[in-house]
Write a protein that binds this DNA or RNA. Structure first.
Lengths: 198, 198
DNA sequence: TCCGTTCTGGATCGATCAATCTAGACACAG
DNA sequence: CTGTGTCTAGATTGATCGATCCAGAACGGA
């Protein structure tokens, strides 16, 4: 049982990485098996429904993995605004370190195929929702009212996704740096009204 | 000369519309010619370098077209923050009216191919830059300092692009509504410090 | 009118796509 | 040992991809 699960996970992770660079439609299944060093036959053994099923699993995996990253990030600072700005700056480092190839697999899958495949759209939405929930939890811990936490988290997530897109087109961290600063200010300003009963 | 220019433009606009829905890689050239009601041979007559050249022209067209939209939007209100929030709300209406298919052609092209084709990446960056410049001009008209106008415009553009992406995955205008409100507050707060010598 | 350029309309190509199918390797149960 | 189900390995398929090629229609100037 060690090998099979391993191969399945390697396929998912390879797909997720390729989707980040070149999107869902731009990624061939042969490329995925090559990247994962997995046999072609295994792909349809683990994902009988083919590419769409692999895409759903890749979205699920990315959703869970990066939600954990958001959760951890709130431990970086007592001020939620500062913690979130650090996420923007860290993302800028990741992009720079990959020559601006390493984007968001959920965003690229959403723009490629969310309008054509309802299952994939739902999987992408669930991933975004996990991230949004992780940000909401970070705000809740600082005593934010539920409604404001939800709206603010949607704003943080949207700003992050857009800044990554613009930064990749420009091959420059500027969009992430500037956006991170304004997002931080918005969060700080909102947090001033919360009763910080940590 | 009427017909040829017309066919060329129809191909560009058909490509731009299809890229919005299903991305660059997800769009076939045969689909473009069908949508444009243009003969297959004309495609390689007007765009000898093929799909990449068509993508560059589509990005250029969208860049110029929507830059004009940003410029007009600043006429909607004397307060730049309010004008920008209106753009977010109008975009929400556009998405709702197209069942969340009608996204941003530049964003989807960027995530699909910017890492693989340098010319297309530059074309996408130029489109984003035109939009950013249009927003900067709107801030300048209200007496914003140049450096702050640039940073704030990068933030506005990033937030808009990301909110569109998240809204499409969710098939809901919420991300655009919430993000628009926080962006408006950030712009209003910045604008208070400008000497409005209109 | 005639000629040359521009554009159209498809046939066609090799490559690549996602997907199917089968044969055998392998682990484990009895 | 034998039998059974899981996973591997890759050949193969039909469809579709982007791209090439060419014959001829349409147009405009001489």
């Amino acid at each position: 049982m060690g090998k099979p699960v391993d191969t399945r996970l390697r396929l998912i992770r390879a797909a997720e990485q390729l989707f980040r660079v070149q999107g869902f439609s731009g990624t061939g299944l042969k490329q995925v098996t090559a990247e994962a060093k997995a046999p072609w036959g295994s792909l349809y053994h683990f994902f009988p429904a083919g590419k769409a099923e692999l895409g759903v699993e890749a979205a699920r995996w990315a959703g869970a993995y990066y939600a954990e990253g958001w959760r951890r990030s709130f431990g970086w600072s007592d001020a939620p605004g500062e913690a979130i700005e650090q996420v923007f700056l860290m993302e800028a480092k990741i992009l720079e370190g990959s020559d601006y190839r390493n984007g968001c697999p959920i965003a690229s899958t959403t723009l490629d195929i969310a309008s054509l495949d309802e299952n994939l759209r739902l999987a992408c939405n669930e991933a975004f929702d996990l991230w949004r929930a992780a940000i909401v939890a970070g705000f809740d811990a600082h005593g934010a009212p539920g409604e404001e936490a939800e709206a603010l988290a949607a704003f943080v997530l949207s700003a992050m996704e857009g800044a990554i897109t613009v930064a990749r087109a420009a091959k420059s961290p500027e969009a992430l740096v500037h956006t991170g600063r304004y997002v931080r200010e918005a969060v700080d300003r909102a947090a001033q009204t919360w009763d910080d009963s940590r």
